[in-house]
Every structure is written in C-alpha cells, then in structure tokens.
Computed example of a mutant assay.
Amino acid sequence: MECREEMGKIVFPVFYHVDPSHVRNQKGSYGEAFAYHERNGFGHQTQRWRAALREVGILSGWHVHDW
C-alpha cells in the first residue's frame, strides 16, 4: 500500500480462501492474529498493518475459492 500511495502503483489484491470483508474488518483469523501481536508488543506495527488491510479489503480484486 505504501507503493500505491507514494509512487502511484496499481494494486491488484488476490483474496485466496479468505473473504475480503474479513480482511477489511479484521474478523476471524485476522482479528485473532492482530490481537495476538498486539498483546505481544507489536501494537504500533499492527496499527499500520490494520490500516493497510482495511484499504486492501476495499479495493476490487480477485476472490479465489478453489483455484
């Protein structure tokens, strides 16, 4: 996402066996993983990750279930 913002690059997200709304809203395993990392001292870093994944979850991309 930094390349998209700073250099105007195009981003094509591929959602492989995950619902884009889970990425966007950090539900399910995404929410659990972020909670784990925040408890273990990566709070500032996870805020950047969360923001980037929220943006990615909004973009149009490929939603792949059985590929």
Rank of each mutant, 00 (worst) to 15 (best):
W49L: 03
G43E: 15
H44D: 15
Y30I: 06
E5H: 09
T46P: 04
F34K: 10
R50S: 14
H22W: 09
C3R: 15
K27W: 08
W49F: 03
V18A: 01
H17Y: 05
G41Y: 03
A52S: 13
I58S: 12
Y36L: 12
G57M: 00
P20T: 11
H37S: 02
D19F: 03
Q45F: 07
W62D: 02
Y36T: 11
F34C: 10
E55I: 02
E5F: 05
V18Y: 02
G31V: 12
G28E: 04
R4C: 13
L53S: 04
W67G: 12
C3M: 13
H44R: 15
G28K: 02
F15N: 00
D66H: 09
N25D: 01
E38G: 04
R48H: 15
Y16M: 01
G61K: 00
F42S: 10
R24K: 12
H44S: 15
H22R: 05
R24Q: 08
E32N: 07
F34W: 06
H44V: 15
H63V: 11
G43R: 15
E32W: 03
L59N: 03
E2N: 12
C3T: 12
G31F: 09
S29D: 12
E38I: 11
H17R: 12
K9R: 10
N25S: 01
R4T: 13
R39S: 13
G41M: 02
I10Y: 12
H22F: 05
G43L: 13
L53H: 12
K27L: 13
H17P: 02
V64Y: 07
V23P: 00
V64T: 09
F34V: 14
F42Y: 11
H22C: 07
R39Q: 13
Q26W: 05
E38K: 06
A33V: 08
D19L: 06
Q45W: 08
W62K: 05
E38A: 03
H37L: 04
V64H: 05
P13V: 08
A52V: 02
E38L: 05
Y16G: 00
V11P: 03
F42M: 11
T46M: 15
H22A: 10
V56P: 01
L53F: 09
N25A: 02
G28N: 01
E2H: 10
V56S: 09
R48W: 14
I58G: 09
S29K: 11
G8S: 03
E32I: 06
F42C: 09
T46W: 14
E6T: 08
F12Q: 12
F15S: 00
S29F: 03
A51V: 07
Y36P: 04
Q45S: 11
S60F: 01
G8Q: 07
E38R: 11
S29W: 05
S21D: 15
R50L: 11
H65L: 06
W67D: 15
K27P: 04
V23D: 00
F12L: 13
G28Q: 03
S21N: 10
T46R: 08
A52M: 06
